[in-house]
């Protein structure tokens, strides 16, 4: 019989994971926590202030407005991109060269860097040289994203829909391809309508990819920064200034590290909370009653 060896070698096996997680998440997060409870004047002069920054951030009306804008923005693009993505996926060809071509065409917006997307739309919407802007001017619509709040919102949303609907579409496309042919055959035998096929076969089988799609799109859009920054710079006024832009203004523009850190943590918790709510709701919806 072998005697059981007792030593601490297991620590070496856990160490790599521990280090990676520490450097990727714990240390940066703790740094932020550290900032959020101190008033820092310079690297050698700092005071512990407790929850003061948190109180200040929670009462800041500028941030309240940004948060509201952020929610409206995220839910609007979700409400457009998810149904649209499903429609695109349903219309994409499934066989032959057409399928490959469609996949490439649909994927193109995903390959373009954020700030380039912002620049493209910035020029695209200009009334003097932009295709879209000039077209609107031509047909007599007074369109100007730089001065009109509605136009600015429209453009920002349109830009996100253009950039990210392909992601939802590709996810749904893969989900649709995974449905066995026999389900469609059975539905034909049962004389199901096109809508019934979608409602009772395709949509239920898409639930899982849609969860991923919704969560990804929510998190990304909730943290959106580059594209609106390049396109409108947060304006006109502060009408398209979203949360991350407010944060950057505060942290780097004004160098209010403490309040910005407190703000970051609240921001992080909001995303976490909303994701959790989404996930649990969808999971509950498909449970066996």
């Amino acid at each position: 019989m072998q005697t059981k060896v007792e030593n601490n070698k297991a620590w070496f096996l856990v160490m790599p994971v521990f280090l990676i997680v520490a450097f990727s998440a714990i240390i940066p997060l703790m740094t932020v926590v550290n900032y959020s409870v101190q008033d820092i004047f310079d690297p050698y002069t700092r005071y512990f202030v407790g929850t003061e920054w948190f109180k200040q951030v929670m009462l800041d009306s500028r941030l309240h407005e940004a948060l509201l804008r952020q929610f409206i923005y995220s839910f609007t693009i979700l409400a457009i991109e998810v149904p649209l993505g499903i429609c695109v996926a349903l219309m994409m060809p499934t066989k032959g060269r057409g399928a490959s071509l469609a996949l490439i065409l649909v994927a193109i917006p995903l390959l373009i860097p954020w700030n380039v997307v912002g620049t493209i739309w910035q020029i695209f919407g200009r009334a003097d040289i932009g295709l879209f802007g000039a077209f609107m001017a031509e047909i007599g619509v007074d369109y100007n994203y730089a001065s009109n709040t509605t136009d600015a919102w429209l453009t920002v949303i349109l830009m996100d829909v253009w950039h990210w609907t392909p992601l939802v579409a590709l996810l749904c496309y893969s989900g649709l391809r995974a449905i066995p042919e026999v389900y469609y055959q059975a539905a034909r035998i049962d004389q199901a309508s096109r809508w019934a096929v979608f409602r009772h076969i395709q949509l239920p089988k898409l639930t899982n990819v849609l969860i991923i799609g919704v969560l990804l799109r929510f998190m990304d859009s909730f943290m959106i920064y580059t594209e609106p920054f390049v396109l409108t710079g947060g304006g006109p006024g502060s009408s398209t200034t979203f949360l991350s832009q407010s944060l950057v203004q505060q942290a780097i523009g004004q160098f209010d590290i403490g309040p910005a850190a407190a703000f970051s943590l609240v921001y992080f918790l909001i995303i976490l909370l909303v994701c959790w709510v989404f996930y649990t709701t969808i999971m509950n919806m498909q449970k066996d009653k």
């Binding site: 026999v182 034909r188 049962d190 004389q191 199901a192 009772h200 076969i201 239920p204």
Partner: peptide, 30 residues
């Protein structure tokens, strides 16, 4: 769907989100 024929396949096909009742009622309701 125009031949009015029923076919049962080798591997079970059920409409996941429906109850057993609704599954059985499906071809009739259609």
């Amino acid at each position: 769907e125009e031949r009015n024929i029923a076919q049962v396949f080798q591997f079970p096909v059920v409409y996941d989100t429906m109850t057993v009742y609704d599954n059985l009622a499906f071809p009739l309701r259609n």
